[in-house]
Simulated scan of single mutants.
Amino acid sequence: MRQKTDYNVNNSHQIVEDKIGVPVVSAATCTTFRMLEALKLEPFVPGAGRLLSGQIH
C-alpha cells in the first residue's frame, strides 16, 4: 500500500530552486520547453522552475 504524501513531482524543480537559489533543469523540463517553443506556445508551467516560468525566451 502506498503512503499519501504532500510531495508533488510537478513542482519539485521549483522547490529545489527556491532552496538552493539557482535554476534547476532536467531532461523533462528541457524537452517540455523545446516542445512548447516548437509549437509557438509560451513556455509557461506554474511552479515548474525558472525554465518553464515564462521568463526565458
Rank of each mutant, 00 (worst) to 15 (best):
L36Q: 10
A27S: 14
N10T: 06
L51Q: 02
V16H: 04
A28V: 08
G21P: 09
Y7D: 11
Y7L: 14
F44R: 08
M35P: 09
G21C: 08
V25N: 07
Q14D: 15
M35R: 12
A48E: 01
K40A: 06
I56L: 09
L39I: 12
E17V: 00
M35N: 11
S53I: 03
V45Y: 04
V45I: 09
V24G: 00
I56K: 07
I15A: 06
A48H: 01
M1Q: 12
A48M: 05
L36K: 10
E17F: 00
N10Q: 12
L52P: 02
R2D: 10
F33S: 02
F44E: 05
E37R: 15
N11T: 03
G54Y: 01
V25I: 13
M35K: 15
P23M: 12
F33N: 00
E42P: 06
M35F: 06
R50W: 01
T32D: 03
A38N: 06
I56R: 05
Q14F: 11
K4Y: 13
A27M: 11
K40T: 10
P46W: 05
S26C: 10
L39A: 12
D18E: 13
I15D: 05
Q14H: 12
K4C: 12
V16F: 08
L52M: 06
A38E: 02
Y7R: 14
E42M: 11
E17K: 04
S53K: 00
E37P: 05
G49R: 00
R34Y: 12
Q3L: 14
S26N: 05
N11F: 06
P23E: 06
C30K: 08
P46L: 07
K40G: 04
P43M: 02
N11Y: 02
M1Y: 10
E17G: 01
K40W: 05
P43V: 01
G47S: 03
V22I: 15
Q14E: 14
T5M: 08
G21L: 10
V9G: 09
L52H: 01
R2F: 13
T29M: 02
I20P: 03
L51E: 02
D18M: 08
D6G: 13
V16L: 13
T31L: 11
P46G: 02
L36A: 08
K19H: 15
G49L: 00
R50V: 04
T5P: 07
A28K: 11
A28S: 11
V9D: 14
L41H: 14
P23D: 09
H13T: 03
N10D: 15
L52F: 01
M35I: 15
R2W: 12
P46S: 06
